[in-house]
Design a binder for these strands. Structure first.
Lengths: 210, 210
DNA sequence: ACTTGATTGAAACAGTTGTTTGAATCAAGT
DNA sequence: ACTTGATTCAAACAACTGTTTCAATCAAGT
């Protein structure tokens, strides 16, 4: 690999990611991280200063990695906004529940979203806000006569429907049968959410002119 | 009060609730809980055995309390299911983002939902499953021709839209202006979610017979 | 071969954790 | 007044935490 120099640094970040994502910042121990990353206990302080700065570095790594792993498509001019919405939802869902090489990134990001620390502001600015702006743009094409406030509510409805499958995943497993749970793949869920959202937009636009 | 006997026991649970909700199980310290509850350090072990059993008792208390604070309405026979859906969504949202005497219950429950511990199974059985069944019943009235799997997907869409305002509340505050955030009251959000969901159901039923 | 600077390693540090202990205090029954 | 059982209290315990220390090791430049 080209990253032979910072090999242990990378191993520590990778290990820290999975431990932080599983247990949270406080419950995670530097000893466990270093053991998992096959690094000495002092490596954390040597490379990152202290536990907190390791955590922040890990969060940054997480969303950069995630954005790279599952990129958004770029649509040619004049693409049907309904197609864009469907693609957007599928990408969002894939980022949230899709399987990939490592899964701790999304869990760590969820923690930051629900209980923000210092690392969150940058994540919102670099990662979440652009996504939200993209969704807002797509929805604006679909409901140009609606107010910006209303469009934002629809955007939150979209995000909420997707996020739900990540946040309450353990509970969902308890509520539906194993085979039905197994059918919850990004593709299928994205189709459902897109259909429901498009229907909702139709109704909102219809109710609006009365 | 009538609960003079277990006064300190109640104080400890109340204190434990807010500390556990704010920091999670591991980061919370028995010392902080006892200090907040004006009880001696040994009170936790005396009344609950250990920290873990205190936590479980606190979670149980949380959802019983929450169900009592914000009950579901009971509808007369033959009520329009659309009215029922609107009421259900409003109740769900109020439970999630509404202000009440104490706010830690919902935060603690969210923690359990996202990262279940032993206390979660009982909560799903006693609290979440009945709610989900009620929602499923209402949606069944509205879309009797759809499959049970499809109805469950719509139910998850409803829950997801509501839950979103609780889970990502800090991020939402970063994304919209303060005055717009202030307008996010249960009443308004419930109307939006109901409208969007009803529109989605219409479209699903329409697409279905093609 | 020697030097230099970066990295690794094992051990120790001071502080905090959940839990236990045993005496002190209290309330109520006799 | 005495007894009894439940409750409170301060102190201590052993285990674990993040962090520091400083010598050992390594890789490369001279």
């Amino acid at each position: 690999m080209a990253t032979e120099v910072d090999d242990t640094r990378a191993r520590v970040i990778e290990a820290a990611g999975s431990v932080f994502a599983n247990k949270g910042f406080e419950a995670a121990t530097v000893r466990e991280i270093c053991q998992l990353g096959k690094a000495n206990l002092a490596a954390v302080n040597y490379y990152f200063g202290d536990k907190k700065r390791l955590y922040i570095a890990t969060v940054e790594f997480a969303y950069r990695q995630r954005a790279e792993q599952v990129p958004f498509p770029s649509w040619p001019e004049g693409t049907d906004p309904r197609k864009k919405l469907a693609d957007f939802i599928l990408t969002l869902l894939t980022r949230m529940i899709g399987r990939g090489p490592s899964q701790w990134e999304r869990d760590l990001m969820l923690r930051e979203v629900a209980r923000p620390t210092e690392a969150c502001q940058e994540m919102v600015h670099d990662f979440i806000r652009p996504q939200f702006a993209m969704l807002f743009g797509i929805l604006s094409e679909l409901m140009s006569t609606a107010s910006a406030e209303r469009i934002r509510l629809v955007a939150f409805s979209v995000v909420g429907q997707c996020l739900h499958y990540r946040v309450t995943d353990p509970v969902i497993q308890m509520l539906v049968s194993p085979q039905e749970y197994a059918s919850y793949e990004p593709q299928r869920l994205a189709e459902h959410i897109t259909e429901l959202t498009l229907g909702g937009i139709e109704r909102i636009l219809r109710d609006q002119r009365k």
